[in-house]
Design a protein around this nucleic acid. Structure first.
Lengths: 234, 234
DNA sequence: TCAGAATGCGAGCGACCACTCGCATTTGTC
DNA sequence: GACAAATGCGAGTGGTCGCTCGCATTCTGA
């Protein structure tokens, strides 16, 4: 629809933005993305209306469509920017794990990184876990998910070279699933309680993996040195 | 609503169903609920259109509204029937736990019960976890969630009488959250792989709780008798 | 047998939403 | 200053969806 008459000058397919964004335009785009993040966060993707996003940004619906060809493109641009910032902040390989680090610290560091990012960008969780989101976002989410799983799988393979691949994949999938569930709990609380849930998430993952990895990675000798169970302040 | 609350004089507020359902009508209701379950399962609540439900049931939209006042009522009736069947199957107190049973068996039995139910009624999960569902369903879900949390909390309190209430609540919340995430993984697989995920879910919960409960409930003596790690067939 | 209730239909209504169009205003560039 | 491009507006358009209405058919009970 956005393409006009069938003239042979084929620019980029269906680009609705002007060829060059002025400073004002870039400001508008940022403004609109911020508003979209807010609306997506509070109502989810499908329930968010483009008119509501425009209103939140203080512009008219027409202005919104001056910069985005459709509603999906807003979510995609938002997702792309978040993804980019994530990779930029935490390196190209998400949460690279050195096989020499003790399991406890590896888990703790990975959890801290991702929790930090999600706490600073709550819309990321909303976009990646909404059950209604459109195609492109789902692709990005699936890609991220696969990356996470295969990375955890690789870490586990270093500890368990003899384990069947199917078991490794399953364990990695479980880890990522538990991380997501824990992240939801973390984001649902604030302050000290949030920190407590972060600790519990680390406990979950560590205790799940510890018997698989074995004593090789246990920080001290006997397994009897039980964790303080409640409220071990890091 | 199958049971009519005893209102003496005034007509029930906005009751669209006929006063007495004939056999045909009861069949239609069951048919419509089954169709709704199918549509809700595949598209979620909000994306499911009443016309699609009617079409799936092989009736006209008007017929659907002969038996349900609105779309929400369909989901509510479905939720009520599932809730009722759940309580009927597993007893009024959901998964009642005898404080004398070992932790491992208690966790295993509870997980098995709920997994069985959710595998037989996949729409239950869809209804209870959709982010878009209307008020009444959310209330029911919250009630079920609170029941689960408080029940786990009570179980933990039996093992840890000295622990602060906030910690008990948090641990119970984590357990329920992990159970939900595990259930999602279980439902996403089939056959042998599904059973493997069930075992992993039990492992997750057991290993998380074991260090809290302590050796008191460990089945055998030394903690060195590690689980076979992979594929312990119960 | 027959009145009235229950069941069934499907076109259509109103509301909402993603998105468009014509036109006015501002900005960059020469 | 002049011109084009970029920006901005908001009523309007087409489509979907929840739901209604009038009317036809089938069943129940006396």
């Amino acid at each position: 629809m956005p393409e006009k008459t069938g003239k042979p000058d084929e620019e980029q397919s269906a680009e609705s933005r002007p060829r060059r964004l002025q400073a004002r335009g870039q400001r508008r785009v940022a403004q609109l993305l911020e508003a979209a993040a807010s609306v997506f966060c509070s109502t989810g993707y499908t329930a968010a209306s483009t008119n509501a996003i425009a209103r939140e940004a203080g512009v008219s619906p027409g202005t919104l469509y001056q910069f985005f060809p459709n509603k999906e493109a807003i979510a995609i641009e938002l997702g792309d920017r978040l993804m980019h910032e994530m990779r930029e902040t935490y390196g190209e390989a998400l949460a690279p794990v050195d096989p020499a680090t003790p399991l406890k610290e590896a888990v703790g560091a990975a959890v801290d990184r991702f929790v930090d990012f999600n706490c600073q960008h709550p819309v990321f969780f909303a976009l990646m876990h909404g059950p209604d989101i459109p195609g492109r976002i789902t692709e990005e989410h699936d890609a991220l998910h696969a990356t996470l799983v295969s990375r955890v799988e690789a870490l586990l393979a270093g500890f368990l070279p003899d384990a069947p691949t199917a078991d490794l994949t399953r364990t990695a999938t479980v880890c990522v699933g538990m991380y997501k569930a824990g992240l939801e709990l973390v984001l649902a609380h604030e302050g000290a309680e949030r920190e407590a849930y972060v600790r519990e998430l680390k406990n979950i993952l560590f205790r799940y993996l510890e018997p698989l990895v074995g004593d090789r990675m246990a920080p001290s000798g006997a397994r009897g040195d039980r964790d303080p169970a409640w409220g071990n302040t890091p």
